[in-house]
Design a binder for these strands. Structure first.
Length: 480
RNA sequence: GGCCACGUGGCGGAGUGGUGACGCAGCGGAUUGCAAAUCCGUGAACCCCGGUUCAAUUCCGGGCGUGGCCUCCA
């Protein structure tokens, strides 16, 4: 099947190698990525996995067909940070209502951010709170998973909590390359006395009357940090699926513990076959942190002048992220954004006027580069070759460039707009004609005045020679 | 202290056991009344020290530097 399409290979954190990708079921390729905890605006570090795994989603859809790829990105709406934020921001509301305010507002903002970054919506975006208790539809849930872990001897109750027994799993720590002794040696927090082993982690914990909680076999409480992803991935993708993604910081303990929970609860040999992790961001050479004052949210970048004294388009941020291979660290800077903007504008200029339609296919060489572990940078070099041809006037290349840009998640007019983006282009057309007429009369003062007036409306004029007649003609674009 | 990444020209960044793509910026030129846009051309780099090898930026070891993780931070 799919002969003629490039072989796809992906780097697998589990094996520390790039491997050929073979889906378990080519008719349903399954991808899970850890989504946001909705307690505050997402920062630009959070934007990277959104963009990287969107690119993977698009590539998989291209290779296997849009109907044959399932992408799940969860929303974590139960967390102690959410509780704290709710109590702080809505002190007059009952906690549960306050929590709902916080999670609704933040989830909506996140969806808007993701869209601005050119990311497609995942197939499913489940919320953790819908998967705590057993469900009418019988999909896996956290309480049932925990019961299963206890029944199979992988978890135990202690001091009102349910804990995972890490010694019950012989290869616990394989993903992160850790063993239990490493964790012991590095422990900097006093070991909780009710844990049998220092590395054991919480599956369920008690809630006080003031905290959100669900009635469970172990009393009123709430789920531990990791169990939600085990439940929601199983609910939509099954016990074993193809790819699990997230940030590098999640390898340990989150993904390690997810693997432990899912495999032990289901009695399977693997949870996901391929584990992919994106690298981290620094900002202007320094770690991003609130205390350094270089903490920047996606929304601030898109809507305020906080970074570099101006706003930036979401697609510029997208390209700025993709310029560097997804596993490499990125030093985020104004200069990087400027370069991304220049590049995207060049591509859009070269694609201007292209006719696009439904059945358009992206360029094969670009796809082939992406198939090599999402090597976007090499793909962009291939795209530059096409853009060069397009800007020389090859209509076919222009068409291909436009289709490929769309495939990669970029629009054709985010930085450069032609008359479609303008309500009344007639006055521009008129002004351009008047200027050309003035130029013919060598009336440069008038011509420049018209050009300046248009510039104030963010309309830039560019003269060029008609290739056929040699006459001067003028092109214009709306700068955004 | 333990584990894991990363370190290529001013900047971004790919890649390779055999004298190092490409992009941005710079510089020179064409075009232009001037600009912008476009086109052509161009200089410049593989953290340090050992080892393996006929040959290392690429493999191995050590060092230095940066970053991440080390039990509730997605």
């Amino acid at each position: 099947m799919n002969s003629g399409l490039p072989p796809l290979s992906l780097y697998n954190t589990l094996t520390r190698k790039e491997e050929p990708f073979e889906p378990l079921d080519g008719g349903n390729v399954r991808l899970y990525v850890c989504g946001p905890t909705v307690y505050d605006f997402a920062h630009i570090g959070n934007a990277r996995p959104v963009i990287v795994f969107d690119l993977l989603f698009r590539l998989l859809r291209h290779v296997y067909g849009p109907k044959h790829v399932t992408y799940v990105r969860n929303i974590t709406d139960v967390d102690d940070k959410i509780n704290a934020r709710a109590a702080r921001d809505y002190p007059s509301l009952p906690l549960n209502e306050a929590i709902r305010e916080v999670t609704e507002k933040t989830a909506t903002q996140f969806a808007a951010d993701a869209q601005a970054l050119g990311a497609l919506e995942p197939t499913y975006q489940p919320r953790a709170t819908d998967f705590v208790l057993p469900r009418p539809d019988g999909k896996p849930d956290m309480v049932s998973l925990i019961e299963q872990l206890i029944a199979r001897g992988h978890a135990y109750e202690a001091a009102g909590e349910v804990l995972f027994d890490t010694t019950s799993m012989p290869d616990y720590g394989r993903l992160s390359g850790r063993n239990l002794e490493d964790n012991l040696a590095g422990a900097r927090v006093a070991v909780d006395t009710h844990k049998r082993n220092p590395a054991d982690f919480v599956l369920w914990k008690q809630s006080s009357a003031q905290e959100p909680g669900w009635d469970s076999p172990w009393g009123r409480g709430r789920p531990g940090w990791h169990i939600e992803c085990s439940a929601m991935s199983a609910a939509y993708l099954g016990e074993t699926f193809d790819i699990h993604g997230g940030g590098l910081d999640l390898i340990f303990p989150h993904h390690e513990n997810e693997i432990a929970q899912s495999r032990c609860a289901h009695g399977t040999r693997e949870m996901a076959r391929v584990w992919m992790h994106n690298g981290f961001l620094q900002v202007e050479g320094q770690k991003m942190s609130k205390s350094l004052g270089n903490f920047i949210t996606i929304n601030e970048l898109l809507a305020t002048d906080k970074f570099g004294g101006r706003i930036w388009h979401g697609e510029v941020l997208r390209l700025a992220m993709l310029m560097t291979h997804y596993r490499e660290p990125i030093d985020f800077s104004v200069r990087r954004l400027e370069e991304a903007e220049t590049k995207l504008r060049d591509w859009q200029r070269a694609a201007a006027g292209a006719e696009t339609g439904e059945g358009d296919q992206p360029d094969a060489s670009v796809v082939a580069e992406l198939a090599r572990d999402l090597n976007f940078h090499r793909a962009s070099v291939a795209l530059d070759v096409i853009a060069k041809k397009a800007s020389r006037g090859q209509a076919e290349a222009r068409h291909c460039l436009a289709a490929t840009l769309r495939f990669l998640g970029f629009s054709l007019d985010s930085l450069v707009a032609d008359d479609q983006g303008l309500e009344e282009p007639a006055h521009v057309v008129q002004a351009v004609a008047a200027r050309l007429s003035a130029l013919n009369d060598k009336d440069f003062a008038t011509a420049d005045r018209i050009r300046n007036e248009l510039a104030e409306q963010r309309i830039a004029l560019m003269d060029f020679k008609d290739p056929a007649t040699g006459e001067r003609r003028t092109r214009w674009e709306l700068k955004r």
